[in-house]
Write a protein that binds this DNA or RNA. Structure first.
Lengths: 192, 192
DNA sequence: GATGTCATGTAATAAGTTACATGATTTG
DNA sequence: CAAATCATGTAACTTATTACATGACATC
């Protein structure tokens, strides 16, 4: 049931479903995502429940936009969620499930390729976040202490992404090194 | 569709649904979880698809056990999945969604309490993983280089958990410090 | 004139959670 | 004798993905 609340939070200013999807692709990409086909019906249900209301507006280009806004009940629900303490779901990292069982292939080259691909993906995301932070620091004097309270919170979530992705990259490197050491030491597989 | 493959991997040795659930609570808790009510029908579907077969065995205590085993088709499917490259799903971290919008409460005490609770939860999980690694290192001479190839992979996933949880704890500390600095510098809210 | 972005949605399917139902054996 | 563990499952519901459908306007 978190998407409801995430959307509720995003509606600090009135917005259409399409806008919210964009936000999942930009800011917020490092902690949540949803398809438009999930966002539209969810907004509809939230309106029925009285957390939102909507009006239809013409668009500059393309079809009319349905713009949603939080009601007072929505504001109360958001505050309740924020004060309810952290929502900690169990992790679901399929790639670690893969790695866990990859010994069965008896092919350390496969493991190496896997880790290199992982590293590439993590490093790409990490450096993307780093650029965001860098741009932010350029446009704000006395960064990060000079941020508004609102931006302080947004920046903190970005830091979480940076820290974790940095740790994942470092872990890939550590694991690749250990893999290499194993191969050098115990003479694996490929002797003729 | 990953649960199928995760279960397929876990069935290195024949096991019942109940056993697999236990594994999600112990080893593997840091990267996946599933309820029994999801595991049982999933195993059933996998048997229909021909990836598993099963036999019924009496239990030492309690009702009969339905023990599943991978078929050859199952082994092939597992190998295919492992070689298909890392499955990288978008993250879904509700607590970061909460923090992102917590500025709206205009209550830095609430943010502080939130971060402290997060830190507690992360540190608890981190130190639990650390104990697992420590026990492992005690029982294995020349740890970690002396591990079998199988255990090397399992250990690598454990290291991933340790690294990431360490990063999350450090992030909480960094954020709490910045929060403190903000309060000392800009004189927030509670002046009389 | 093809491709991309803007914009909304529905339908079908898959995945995951919560609640319900049962009953034996073990441990305190 | 109460509570926990062993062990299997079904049913109802919620959440998320994939596929389908539409159509205007903008850019190359």
């Amino acid at each position: 049931m978190s998407l409801d609340h995430i959307l509720l939070g995003m509606l600090r200013e009135p917005a259409a479903g399409y806008d919210l999807k964009k936000e999942f692709e930009g800011t917020g990409a490092h902690f949540w995502s949803a398809h438009l086909s999930q966002i539209y019906p969810t907004l509809g249900r939230m309106e029925e429940r009285g957390w939102l209301d909507s009006r239809t507006e013409p668009s500059d280009r393309g079809p009319d936009r349905r713009v949603y806004r939080r009601t007072e009940a929505g504001e109360r629900e958001l505050a309740r969620w924020l004060r309810a303490g952290p929502e900690l779901d169990p992790p679901r990292l399929a790639y670690l499930g893969q790695l866990f069982h990859m010994g069965e292939l008896e092919d350390l080259d496969a493991t190496e390729a896997f880790l290199r691909e992982l590293r590439g993906a993590f490093e790409a995301r990490r450096s993307a976040l780093e650029s965001v932070e860098w741009a932010w620091s350029e446009s704000c004097p006395d960064f990060p202490d000079g941020l508004s309270d609102e931006d302080f919170h947004a920046h903190a979530t970005l830091r979480a992404g940076l820290r974790v992705l940095g740790a994942r990259v470092a872990w890939c490197d550590e694991t690749l090194e250990r893999l290499d050491r194993r191969r050098r030491t115990h003479d694996h597989g490929d002797e003729r």
